[in-house]
């Protein structure tokens, strides 16, 4: 039963990684850039939600929506100001700019919200009144006579991840904008010739990725409630690893990579060693890339001579 417990928390952590990895993978697929600032957008989203809920006592759902809105706007603004002028520049220049944006967001957060850790409120609780009239706060369900405990955060995370995946798959395969995105990721020049507005499509990709990052930030901080300006960086790196793991540029790959990474991390923590869990996660990544150099679901592009 403990195994099942670990598996479920692994899937939950993996779902968060998957949602973040989506942002990386979509932006990489379309703009061919590693957006290192993505992890910090998560942190911004979490802070917005935190202040909306605990300072201005808005309902949690409104807080999440507000965070999504702010992050979406942030994503578009950053793309316009920092990445758009570098469309034709070498990829390393864009990478360094992304790192600059990441520093900027972290330090702006440090100035705005200070480095004191904030305790993120858990919005995923059920309040009820028992027979004696006392208020009972439940934060999860218990199965098999209390042997298997699943918190509502875990359930919500997995559920939200599934919904996002389904919505995104529908969006990219059925809608006009989604098709434009796939066309741009395949061949920008040809897409432009077909009358697709490439710049608008790239902006849209950043908007979606950043909006998802806000959701991921709220879920991450609900499960691990300490919030500091560097909260986003390690999950960001892990999610980036997850995206590569599954094959960067591929949406199902991000899901698979995220889930596997989350499960491996929790299992490594539980059964091998807490301190070495990161090393084990990265070691598995290296082995996978050696066997499948383009990730699990990535397309192997043959070089033409």
């Amino acid at each position: 039963m403990t195994f099942l417990n670990f598996l479920i928390s692994g899937i939950s952590l993996g779902s968060i990684y998957a949602i973040i990895a989506l942002g990386y993978t979509m932006v990489y697929g379309i703009a061919k850039m590693l957006n290192f600032a993505h992890g910090d957008v998560i942190m911004v989203g979490a802070y917005i939600c935190f202040y909306a809920v605990s300072r201005y006592s808005m309902p949690p759902l409104v807080g999440v929506l507000l965070a999504m809105l702010v992050c979406t706007v942030l994503g578009i603004v950053v793309e316009r100001l920092a990445y758009k002028p570098l469309r034709a520049a070498p990829s390393l220049a864009v990478l360094i700019t992304a790192i600059g944006v990441s520093y900027f967001l972290q330090n702006a957060a440090l100035l705005l919200w200070s480095s004191n850790p904030k305790v993120f409120p858990n919005a995923f609780v059920l309040k009820s009144v028992d027979a004696e009239g006392n208020e009972v706060v439940k934060n999860g369900v218990e199965l098999f006579a209390g042997q298997l405990k699943i918190s509502y955060v875990t359930l919500a995370t997995i559920l939200i991840c599934i919904i996002i995946m389904l919505a995104l798959t529908w969006f990219t395969s059925k809608t006009k904008m989604g098709k434009a995105m796939r066309a741009c990721s395949e061949d920008k020049g040809a897409a432009q010739l077909m009358g697709i507005n490439v710049n608008a499509t790239i902006s849209m990709t950043f908007a979606i990725g950043s909006g998802l990052a806000a959701v991921a930030g709220v879920l991450l901080c609900s499960a691990y409630p300490t919030l500091v300006p560097t909260t986003g960086s390690m999950p960001g790196i892990k999610a980036f690893t997850a995206a590569v793991f599954g094959g960067i540029g591929s949406i199902p790959g991000a899901l698979l990579g995220g889930l596997l990474l989350g499960v491996i991390e929790i299992f490594a923590k539980a059964y091998i060693s807490t301190q070495l869990s990161d090393a084990i996660v990265f070691a598995v990544l290296i082995v996978v890339l050696l066997v499948k150099p383009a990730g699990l679901l990535g397309k192997q592009i043959r070089e033409k001579v």
């Binding site: 002028p85 570098l86 360094i96 700019t97 600059g100 944006v101």
Partner: peptide, 11 residues
Amino acid sequence: IVLILVMLATN
């Protein structure tokens, strides 16, 4: 900011 501006200017 300096880092971002330098990258934008040099490219």
